[in-house]
Design a protein around this nucleic acid. Structure first.
Lengths: 348, 348
DNA sequence: AGAAGTCACGAAAACGTTTGCGTGTTAAAA
DNA sequence: TTTTAACACGCAAACGTTTTCGTGACTTCT
């Protein structure tokens, strides 16, 4: 087992200086053809590779981007990561991940770990806890130190940085419009509490679609779940509440849910109550998940193009990193990713 | 926007030497209380943090581990990552990811990118293409340079390194035994081609269970899918073949599938043919996915404890990294993770 | 043959740390 | 008062690169 070889070792073996070796490997014309040949042969033999860390230190650039997400076991986020990784690799960058686990403190810790020189910039989506506490100092501190940040999906207007978001409002609106066009007259909304911006926007889209069609929104048809609960408990409670809703409002013939699981639960409850999807009740979910495609009936959803979001975020970030030197006045942009209604069997 | 501050800058401002600053920050007793106080106050004011890259270079240690997986948009792998991240963070390490996308060359490229000093060790699962080509030189080269590797799930005996694997054989055997105990007499197997070791082992488990129960395995009940196909095409073909199988063998009353999707497809086809799950036909899948839990009927599966695998792999790797100095003769271990049969609605 | 230019290479600084050791100043011991 | 010891700090090397600049040995003009 021979360890990695360095310039210094090559230099010693070949009895030349370190600089000569370095230049020879780069085919510098300062070096004679003889020496170049000799050095390169030796380097190849010993499989020399420049040490990345040394390069990073010298160049004050790591060619690595950090991505911090609340959770990785989640289709949306893993698709985003894939997108990020895709363009990052293409552009010569590595990706280092940090999971906040929806916790504020873990988010802060993780960012601090990476911000100390390990990476050139951040791509991140805020944890729910951060969203709740509305404490954004760590983002601003990081940016103040000259580290660019691109936020995606869960953003907040108070933070000035580049952003990539989904057009939640129109996505929801179009989905509900679809239900209306399919002759639904009593459309329920299953959503989360409002502190997450995306939930709020989707609710607004729902309301807007109703109003445009002269349908008076009914508060009783809106179910707001508390999604900070433990997963298992949550699911049971969710089904219970949906069942109550359906029982109290037999007239419901359409459901728009802000995520896949809510939509699936609605279908499950409906079936349990003897209702047929999509004949008695139509359902649309919001997400990019895998459940929708494989459920029975398969679920019509609003696709978020998660991978595309990752790609755009990465491009945005790398662009900013690489033209850092032009210290023109900061110019932030927000990219809005359009949603797409993927029609499957849960709607007519 | 003030950039990150360094020891040198603090030293200059306070008119002391760099070493004094460094020592003061570490509360060295070489330094007077006065100076310590002064330096620390200044450092706190400017939010000084040691530069990680410089530390990595100096210590010849990055405190980062690289993980290379074939695909991230996949519950099994993202759960593994979560496990790795969990213990890595707890033990003071970062995680950097590389996706091979099931491609040999991408795997090699990615490993080379990371092996040049960016990380202290690898955790990886082989790509299908690598498995097919049986070209393992990059693993051996990496290990020869003193970089420890821990492989998980998809492993191969030719490579000498630490491994974390699932007990595929017994997992499969127990699942099939369960079907048999539930009075299934004609059990079909839906699997992949044999080049992936895990597929082969699961098949063996299936056969073993049959034999132990004096049931003669029938080749016609075994469906081997070619999973190198494009996903969509694959799915259609899969359903077709399952349907043919079911039609040709109406006596089938149990199905064991080597992954979630195959199991789900089997249920789908069965339902389409008017069969009731689990009354007419019982189904068990192999996986840790999210589909099983939320399908209707929900699917009985062999859980792989993916997160646990990640945790064990990370511990194994970090242990090796940290006792690297004891250059005793290499000792590799293989950790076998037991599976667990999670009973749901697709079995009686 | 002396001046000028080319060639091929080495020295050294820089990136930001840590740390062993040397040193000047002061205080305590002889 | 001289020797010794403690104290508080600075120097310099090291990690592995890249790159600017300097320099000795030839070659080539005039």
């Amino acid at each position: 087992m021979r360890k990695k070889i360095t310039l210094k070792q090559i230099a010693r073996e070949l009895d030349v200086s370190i600089s000569t070796v370095s230049k020879a490997l780069k085919n510098s014309k300062e070096i004679s053809a003889d020496t170049i040949q000799k050095v390169q042969a030796f380097a190849k033999l010993y499989n020399y590779r420049p040490n990345n860390i040394a390069l990073s230190l010298k160049n004050r650039k790591t060619n690595t981007i950090g991505i911090i997400i609340p959770e990785i076991v989640h289709h949306f986020f893993s698709k985003v990561i894939r997108g990020v990784e895709l363009v990052a690799n293409k552009r010569g960058y590595n990706v280092i991940i940090g999971l906040s686990n929806e916790s504020f403190s873990k988010e802060v810790i993780n960012m601090e770990m990476l911000a100390n020189g390990s990476i050139d910039g951040f791509i991140l989506s805020m944890s729910k806890e951060t969203l709740l506490q509305q404490d954004y100092h760590h983002y601003n501190e990081t940016m103040n130190q000259g580290m660019p940040i691109v936020m995606f999906d869960r953003v907040v207007s108070e933070i000035k940085c580049d952003k990539v978001i989904v057009d939640d409002f129109n996505g929801a609106k179009n989905a509900v419009q679809k239900l209306i066009s399919n002759n639904c007259e009593h459309i329920a909304l299953i959503t989360t509490k409002d502190y997450v911006s995306v939930g709020r926007l989707r609710t607004q889209g729902y309301l807007e679609a109703l109003e445009e069609n002269k349908i008076t929104p009914q508060a009783e048809l809106i179910l707001k779940m508390d999604d900070t609960l433990d997963y298992e408990v949550h699911l049971e409670k969710l089904e219970d509440e949906i069942e109550q809703l359906f029982n109290a409002h037999k007239e419901i013939d359409g459901v728009f849910a802000v995520n896949e699981l809510y939509a699936l639960s609605a279908m499950k409850v409906a079936r349990r109550m003897g209702l047929n999807v999509p004949n008695d009740i139509q359902v649309i979910g919001f997400t990019d998940g895998v459940l929708s495609k494989h459920s029975t009936p398969s679920l019509t959803t609003v696709s978020q193009h998660a991978q595309l979001m990752g790609e755009r975020a990465a491009d945005l970030l790398i662009d900013k990193i690489e033209k850092e030197f032009e210290a023109e006045e900061e110019q932030f942009q927000t990219i809005v990713i359009n949603t797409e209604l993927v029609e499957r069997e849960s709607t007519k």
